[in-house]
């Protein structure tokens, strides 16, 4: 079953003025339930516009956005319900923190959903656990935390709504390798626990290779490529044409294939790469 499906979706800004800009042009795609999709593309390729379509922050100029086969714009008055089901984490979400304690800030979403207090407390605790926030940090002011901790608190604030679909715009931007791993690992854990669907926008090919099942490549407001991770990285040339990159390890295997030393170049994780080389070395 598809968690989200986009049918002939276009977004046009400034229709009828000389500043007319087509942000998204006839997008058709779907995000199957329980999968992780990585969206890659340049700044201005339409990735972020696509993200704000998914939870109804933006209304498409034409076309349909379906959440579990139902159009999200069917009842615009119930958009809050849609937004609680499709969690959206923006770039640098730490800049949205505002409440007195981390705990209260994480509870903002569930409070807006008018849930009973016990349920709110339960959800805050769970969300904090997924994001690796300690009991002690929950009582602190969000403004006392370090950069990485703030990021986690902000992501927990969206997880606390227990969305079925989670869309994240560069959740690990600016963090060091350990911080990246902790945040992305926690999100995968959340996905596995609730059978949720993850959509991660990222510039890091290594992260996409490591965590995603499918990849959607955006270019100039259109879908440039889409498919399973190995299919996409097998077509490295097409990615290079769009000025995008592949993981370094894939580059190595493309070179080895060129030299006739190995047969396939759809290798993008270290563990698999090691196995292949060991087999070749005999």
């Amino acid at each position: 079953m598809n968690a989200i499906e986009l049918k002939n979706v276009s977004v046009v800004y400034g229709e009828g003025t000389p500043f007319k800009k087509i942000a998204l042009n006839n997008i058709n795609t779907c995000f199957p339930q329980g999968t992780v999709t990585g969206i890659i593309g340049h700044t201005g390729s339409g990735k972020s516009t696509l993200a704000s379509l998914l939870n109804g922050l933006l209304k498409p100029t034409s076309g349909e956005v379906l959440l579990f086969d139902k159009s999200i714009w069917e009842k615009p008055k119930e958009m809050v319900q849609i937004r609680s089901q499709v969690g959206l984490v923006f770039q640098y979400p730490e800049y949205q923190l505002f409440d007195e304690t981390v705990e209260a800030d994480i509870a903002f979403g569930p409070r807006n959903l008018k849930l009973p207090q016990e349920e709110i407390d339960k959800r805050v605790k769970l969300a904090a656990e997924f994001c690796g926030i300690t009991e002690r940090d929950l009582k602190r002011s969000p403004f006392e935390l370090s950069g990485g901790q703030k990021r986690r608190a902000a992501i927990a604030g969206v997880l606390a709504m227990q969305p079925k679909v989670l869309v994240l715009d560069e959740p690990a931007a600016g963090l060091d390798p350990k911080g990246r791993e902790e945040i992305l690992g926690g999100l995968i854990e959340y996905k596995n626990t609730y059978g949720a669907t993850l959509i991660i926008i990222s510039h890091s090919m290594e992260d996409v290779a490591k965590y995603a099942d499918n990849i959607l490549v955006m270019n100039n407001g259109e879908i440039y490529m889409q498919g399973a991770v190995e299919e996409i990285f097998l077509q490295a040339e097409r990615l290079f044409d769009a000025n995008l990159d592949v993981p370094q390890i894939t580059k190595l295997f493309i070179e080895l294939k060129k030299r006739g030393l190995c047969e396939s170049s759809d290798i993008y994780t270290l563990g698999y790469a090691k196995k292949v080389i060991e087999k070749l070395l005999g």
Partner: peptide, 16 residues
């Protein structure tokens, strides 16, 4: 620009 971003982020957390 920043104000618009924050408004969107809080709306995504179901703010009314």
């Amino acid at each position: 620009e920043e104000t618009n971003k924050i408004i969107s982020a809080q709306k995504a957390r179901c703010a009314d």
